[in-house]
């Protein structure tokens, strides 16, 4: 029997180690995933991204119930769209028609982007823009070649050429800029699975009770089985 288990274990380890090589190596964002980080990311997202992108699945009220943001703040600095409603999903400030006219396509909804692409992908995408005079917008991206989105964070990041040369210095140091992007990714991670904080709060209680139940069940079983193992 033991040999079977060892064999299967080896097979799993072997299978896990062979991974696919990708065109661009994706790096993981560095942040502490808690409500404060996500609140920070929410404000950054509102400032830089919500002009074009919606978070259709998440209602504004969740920022109050999940993250503890004051309702007044949500109304003042988050519900920027003229037809935003506290009880409805988060809207972009720009209309779809304007977006189409300016960028060729409407910006996609970002509710599930982290679940769909992974946070490494989103983070690397946001830090991989470079200046490309051949593109109509002037921007290109290593993760999404011929990207339609402009580098909205360029004033903070600075402008880079394709081979990584600084063409224009940004307002933030690279380290500070990467923290900022990481916070935005943290916000998008929250929107793609807002049950996160609730699940993690419940975790210790649920698992604790189940472990106690299992222990009691084990003692009961051992008691009953005493005469079988004589």
């Amino acid at each position: 029997m033991r040999k079977v288990w060892i064999g299967l274990l080896v097979a799993i380890l072997f299978a896990g180690n062979v991974s696919l090589a990708r065109a661009v190596t994706l790096t993981a964002p560095q942040y502490v995933f808690n409500k404060a980080t996500v609140r920070e990311g929410t404000l950054l997202f509102m400032d830089h991204c919500s002009a074009c992108h919606s978070i259709h699945s998440l209602r504004y009220e969740r920022l109050e119930t999940d993250l503890g943001m004051p309702k007044a703040q949500i109304i003042k600095s988050i519900m920027l769209s003229s037809n935003a409603n506290f009880l409805e999903g988060m809207r972009p400030t720009m209309t779809q028609a304007d977006a189409k006219a300016w960028f060729g396509i409407a910006a996609p909804d970002l509710s599930h982007i982290v679940r769909a692409e992974g946070q490494r992908w989103v983070y690397t995408y946001l830090t991989s823009f470079y200046w490309d005079p051949k593109r109509p917008s002037g921007w290109n991206n290593r993760v999404v070649p011929a990207v339609a989105m402009p580098d909205v964070l360029a004033p903070w990041e600075g402008i880079y050429s394709k081979n990584g040369q600084v063409l224009h210095r940004g307002r933030l140091t690279p380290a500070a800029y990467h923290r900022k992007v990481a916070d935005i990714v943290a916000f998008l991670r929250y929107t793609s699975d807002p049950s996160y904080f609730k699940r993690h709060n419940l975790g210790p209680y649920v698992l604790g009770s189940l472990i106690i139940l299992s222990l009691l069940a084990y003692l009961l079983k051992r008691n009953y089985w005493r005469d079988v193992h004589k």
Partner: peptide
């Protein structure tokens, strides 16, 4: 005998199930 034993199994299994749902859905 096997009802108590299986009950113990259920306890352990539900712990695993809950851990997956809560921490790695």
């Amino acid at each position: 005998y096997y009802t108590v034993k299986d009950f113990f199994g259920v306890g352990v299994w539900l712990t695993i199930f809950a851990a997956i749902i809560l921490y790695a859905p």
